[in-house]
Simulated scan of single mutants.
Amino acid sequence: MAAIKENLVMNKKLRYVILSFITIGTFVLSCNQEKNNCEVSEIVPTETTGTEHNPDEEKIKTTINELLFNAGNYNLLALDSMMSDKAMLGISILKDGTWSNSEIAIKDFFESVEKMERSPYCEIPNDYDIIITEGQLALARADCILYRWGIPQTREINHFTFIKENGNWKILNISWTKEEISKEKKKYDLKIFARGYAQAWCSQKPNFVSSFFSEDGVLQINDGSSAKGTEAITNVAKGFMETFPDMVVSLDSLTTKSDKTRFYWTLTGTNNGTKGTGNKVKISGIEEWTLNKDGLIQESKGYFDNKEYERQLKFGIN
């Protein structure tokens, strides 16, 4: 991590020079593609960096985080709503000392993803660079580490081109470099494992949840019967996801004592599933985990106030 930071500092001036030239070229292209939302200023464009307070920077960071979250869950509908219709993706991958490049239209990418066997991931930005021109066009760089089940897999430096449409930032292009993390640095991180687990509960893909358990893992909720094995745990997650199509599970905190880890969570959602009441629910609880040697959940005992949960299903949140 120290080497990464040193590299960022050494190349910061060069990066802004390069980004400035890219900004001009991209602005011309985006005007051709999005004529209704481009205005050429006669004044030299004003660029903002992280040293200046600009509310658009926070909006762009939020947009990037939402995109990475939805990408990790393969939520194509949410991703599509964030993209320009003509958005392109480009990737440069380092393998065996050689870089290989590819590009694909966003629509073609979505179609390919639908045919793929997918596994969840959690991509976390470590650093941002943002340049905004006239409050209308933006370039952003996000230095990220991609994790699967709490283990870092690749370092991915993402480059985004944004254009503002009706007050919202839309993504015109995404390009990124991808480098494998060295074996000695692939160390398990329990907090990121828990973050990925919470993200999986938001995915509407119940097999993503069960992938965080060992194959013979056990999930028990309150005094209910235990669900043992991948299929049974998938069915438990499916039940909640069908009850709450917009379900969001947040990680509130994480504690470890002896061989037990406590995952504190809050579920919010609307009961719009089959025979749903249409009421909103917000309930908090705990899962107490026993982890196996690989860092997966061997046993989880979940607890929440079932009476309050049933009351909210019937009457909604007070």
Rank of each mutant, 00 (worst) to 15 (best):
I171N: 05
Q220F: 06
L68I: 03
F212L: 08
L67V: 09
G25Q: 13
W99Y: 13
R262N: 10
S210I: 05
N279V: 11
N36E: 14
L291D: 03
E58M: 10
N279M: 09
K185C: 07
V28P: 00
G224I: 03
N306H: 11
S112H: 11
R148W: 01
T98H: 12
F109V: 01
F21T: 15
T177V: 14
S30K: 05
N318S: 10
L251T: 06
Q153H: 03
D305E: 12
N65K: 06
A78H: 12
G229R: 07
I192H: 05
T26Q: 15
I297E: 08
K170N: 05
E114C: 06
S226D: 06
I151M: 03
L77D: 15
D189Q: 14
N271T: 05
I297K: 01
G302K: 06
L267E: 04
F263M: 09
E42P: 01
K12E: 15
K35G: 05
G135F: 07
T234R: 09
I43W: 08
G229F: 00
V218Q: 07
M88P: 02
L77T: 15
G224W: 06
P45A: 04
L8N: 08
G150K: 06
E231Q: 13
L79K: 07
K191M: 03
E42R: 04
F212T: 07
G278S: 12
S253M: 13
T133C: 11
T274V: 12
A78R: 15
L139P: 00
L254F: 07
D143W: 00
Y128P: 01
V209F: 00
S84D: 00
M88S: 10
G90S: 13
K5N: 10
F315Y: 15
E52F: 12
S41H: 13
G285Y: 07
L254N: 10
T48S: 09
I4A: 07
E34M: 12
S203A: 15
L137G: 02
S92Q: 08
E179L: 07
G196L: 03
S300H: 00
S20M: 10
I192R: 09
T154N: 03
Y128E: 01
T177H: 02
Q204R: 14
E66R: 15
M82S: 12
H53N: 14
T133W: 13
N36S: 15
I64W: 00
A198Q: 09
R141W: 00
K178F: 00
N65I: 00
E58I: 07
I233S: 05
K187P: 04
D189V: 12
D246A: 06
K307P: 02
I93L: 04
A87C: 14
